[in-house]
């Protein structure tokens, strides 16, 4: 029983990072119907920035703040300067461009910081089952999810952002600057992506450190329902739990297969994800 609880807590902790990454994908998909394949690249850039800041200042938390700031700014920049001009011609082009951006940024990070692994000091101990680092992961993602919910639900900015996402023309006719809302959405999404990176990356970072995490993140987003933020969180935790149970009770070599199995099972029952569109309208 004790073992089961440990596995559960572990699963939730690793699921938290997937949930955060899934959230960052869903926020953008919801607003633009675009899967942002560049998300792990933006997280990568943020985490390496944090690495350098931490090295220079010796403070993990300055690095942490730098990561989130970098995510916010780079996300907004990518939307405004790279994605938007291309999305005007075709949505598919924009998706391909985000994929290209992923490769370019990964390459650039390798050129700047080197392709070898760097040890990234962590603020909390990550040894043992359900370590302080795990607790921090869960709490950080929980707080971010709540803040995001509050932002969308209760602030004028959130109302504008939702209006722009659901019905851009009606939003414009209500005086909303839809383009600005898109930029803000990308910024916030990439900030959360950077958080996911800070949770999933250390203790070792390298240009390809997020490849696997991203696969689980996007899996979580699809499982939860691509246009539902709550679904993203549920999907992330579900993937984390499933992989933790299977690797604990059956064997770690089957963990990745578990994620695939969850996708197949969930989508065969609910093809649009756990929280599909009709539910999303109620929240």
């Amino acid at each position: 029983m004790n073992y089961f609880i440990t596995l559960t807590l572990n699963g939730l902790a690793s699921g938290a990072a997937y949930a955060a990454l899934a959230l960052s994908l869903v926020i953008i998909y919801q607003a633009t119907r675009l899967v942002n394949f560049a998300q792990p690249a933006l997280a990568l850039l943020s985490v390496y920035t944090a690495y350098t800041v931490t090295q220079l200042t010796g403070s993990y938390w300055l690095g942490f703040a730098a990561a989130l700031t970098t995510g916010l700014l780079v996300g907004a920049f990518v939307e405004r300067v790279i994605v938007r001009p291309i999305a005007r011609t075709s949505q598919l082009n924009a998706i391909i461009v985000t994929l290209g951006l992923l490769l370019v940024v990964q390459g650039a990070v390798g050129m700047i910081w080197g392709n070898e692994q760097h040890g990234f000091r962590y603020a909390f101990s990550y040894v043992g089952r359900f370590s302080p680092a795990d607790v921090f992961s869960l709490v950080a993602v929980g707080v971010v999810a709540l803040l995001l919910f509050g932002l969308y639900r209760f602030t004028p900015l959130g109302l504008r952002m939702r209006a722009a996402a659901f019905h851009p023309e009606a939003a414009r006719l209500s005086g909303v600057k839809v383009g600005l809302m898109l930029t803000a959405g990308w910024g916030i999404a990439s900030l959360i992506g950077a958080l996911a990176g800070m949770l999933a990356g250390p203790p070792f970072i390298s240009p390809n450190v997020f490849d696997v995490v991203f696969v689980f993140g996007i899996t979580a987003a699809v499982v939860g329902g691509l246009d539902n933020p709550f679904g993203a969180v549920i999907g992330g935790l579900l993937i984390g739990l499933g992989m933790s149970y299977v690797s604990g009770f059956v064997g770690p070599e089957l963990a990745t297969l578990t994620a695939l199995a969850i996708v197949v099972i969930v989508l065969s029952v609910r093809p649009d994800g756990i929280l599909s569109r009709p539910t999303a309208r109620k929240v």
Binding site: L159, R162, A163, F166, A171, R281
Partner: peptide, 22 residues
Amino acid sequence: PEGGGVIVELTVEENLRLGGLW
């Protein structure tokens, strides 16, 4: 606009508030 352009995902109050936000 034609059909009203009401945002069906938002509540009645949110739709109204949206119109006065600016």
